[in-house]
Design a protein around this nucleic acid. Structure first.
Lengths: 116, 116
DNA sequence: TCAATATATGAATAACTGTTCATATATTAG
DNA sequence: CTAATATATGAACAGTTATTCATATATTGA
């Protein structure tokens, strides 16, 4: 495998890109955040939570799917610090974890021309 | 499965969330876009392309991995409208497809405090 | 304490995805 | 035309992930 022989300008870009490539760990962390909204099932859950905090059954109503499937996804989202939860009587109330998450969802909404 | 009996405010939110939930197809489309940057291997490729257009081997240099793996990922990215390509002699030159993609990557960079 | 409700979770399965290896295609130089 | 270079791609495999089913736990009301 040999480096292709474009104009030097391109070589320059390649070097620059390699140099500026973020650290492995950072890349993985951001990738994980985006992964949360890269599956429709989770994206819907997070969209629902943009309305404000919701209990599990209300999330199920809004986002669809079975209680079990939603619960599994919520656990995953929580494990990745994307949602948080608190108990209120019989219910567990979920909400978006931080502004980081809100910002990413806002961008998604812009792309969707979302009216939320 | 019965609707939980929170305050009416919560019921309201659930209805609103269900009502404002984007269409299945739109959700899938956005999910696909974010999916592209939800795996380190692709995220690196896209970061490299923020420098400007690059041929495959230069992408390999910058993002790592084998030529074959990168080529497979490029095909996937192109199929999803995230990168585009043009031939220039022996080389195929790739670039980010549109401002949509640039915006998403910028957000990722902000989260990373990326200096690109 | 007992029944009902809300939520979580382990195990199994099915579907999906990334990588590798070998090979094919396309372009250019000689 | 031939050799070398650049890129693409099919098949196989491994790893990951979403869903389902059954069941467990926790809370409340009677």
């Amino acid at each position: 495998m040999k480096s292709c022989n474009h104009e030097a300008e391109h070589e320059e870009k390649a070097r620059s890109a390699a140099l500026n490539m973020p650290a492995e760990e950072e890349t993985a962390r951001v990738a994980a955040l985006f992964k949360a909204i890269s599956e429709p099932c989770r994206l819907k859950i997070l969209f629902a939570l943009r309305q404000g905090e919701l209990c599990v059954l209300h999330i199920v109503e809004a986002a669809g799917g079975t209680q079990s499937a939603v619960s599994h996804q919520l656990r995953l989202l929580k494990a990745n610090g994307i949602v948080r939860s608190r108990r209120e009587g019989q219910n567990i109330i979920y909400s978006l974890a931080d502004e980081h998450v809100v910002a990413v969802l806002s961008l998604a909404c812009e792309h969707l021309k979302c009216r939320i």
